[in-house]
């Protein structure tokens, strides 16, 4: 009987000891290293119309807390793949609401139809590469030329624009003190892109019909962007949840003035 009692005590002791041992590993791995998006996010554009460019690099495993993002121990370099020129980029820290952002600056000469590679390497040797190709130097043709009315059909052609490139446009104007933005409709086929519009339609889309074209709004700006190959794939990466927007592009503005419709 006494032995039996000892057996039970021993059994329970072993049981609890096993549970305690099983409970020794008390760590939590809250970050999914295999998430698939890589170690860094990169946001920035290489615009061959500009002289200075900033590329933001972030550590994807660092929570968006002041302490976590204050330092970014990486080396960032930009290579013109076609010319074989490499430049190490300095970090410019810009703080938004206590959150430090690391924006790497380059003055490298950016040219059309050129491949650039951005390399991010951390202090443990982990490397991640990003590639951006600038678009062709497209000719922008506006027709007709001269003076416009609200009813004038204006046609803007960008030539050439390859099928894997993208042209985006926005009309910007002021109406009674408010800044209005209207997305431009871009047709893209046969190696060219076109934006065709009538000023009255653009104004109507921005503010509705309660306006007098040419009087309330007599001018607007078309801000267009010609983006290099592969940008659409980047936007659709990870169901739109991608963390890379490193692109080559060209941006410019065209101003239109118009009188009242007849």
């Amino acid at each position: 009987m006494k032995n039996k009692r000892h057996d039970i005590v021993w059994l329970f002791s072993c049981f609890f000891a096993l549970l305690m041992i099983a409970g020794c590993d008390n760590t939590i791995d809250g970050f999914d290293e295999d998430g698939g998006v890589g170690g860094f996010s990169v946001y920035g554009a290489l615009d061959y119309s500009k002289d200075v460019h900033f590329i933001r690099v972030q550590d994807l495993s660092a929570p968006l807390l002041a302490d976590s993002v204050a330092e970014l121990d990486v080396e960032v370099s930009l290579t013109n793949v076609d010319a074989g020129i490499t430049e190490t980029l300095p970090d410019s820290v810009i703080v938004f609401d206590d959150i430090a952002t690391h924006n790497f600056r380059t003055t490298m000469d950016i040219t059309p139809q050129t491949t650039y590679r951005l390399k991010v390497e951390d202090d443990e040797g982990f490397t991640q590469n990003f590639e951006a190709i600038t678009p062709a130097d497209a000719e922008v043709i506006v027709s007709p030329t001269g003076e416009y009315t609200c009813n004038t059909v204006i046609r803007i052609t960008f030539d050439p624009v390859q099928s894997d490139e993208l042209v985006q446009g926005k009309f910007l104007f002021s109406f009674r003190g408010a800044d209005i933005t209207v997305e431009a409709d871009v047709e893209q086929n046969n190696g060219v892109a076109r934006i065709i519009f009538q000023p009255k339609d653009i104004v109507a889309r921005g503010i509705g019909n309660a306006f007098e074209c040419g009087l309330d709004v007599s001018a607007f700006v078309l801000k267009y962007t010609h983006i290099g190959p592969g940008f659409e794939e980047i936007l659709n990466d990870f169901e739109g949840l991608g963390t890379e927007q490193f692109v080559g592009l060209f941006q410019d503005n065209i101003t239109f003035s118009f009188s009242q419709s007849q």
Binding site: G30, D34, G35, V37, S41, Y43, L60, S61, N103, F246
Partner: peptide
């Protein structure tokens, strides 16, 4: 788990 913390900059409309 989390697989990324990020500040999404909407290129080309936004700049870093």
């Amino acid at each position: 788990q989390v697989f990324a913390f990020d500040l999404l900059v909407d290129i080309p409309d936004e700049t870093p």
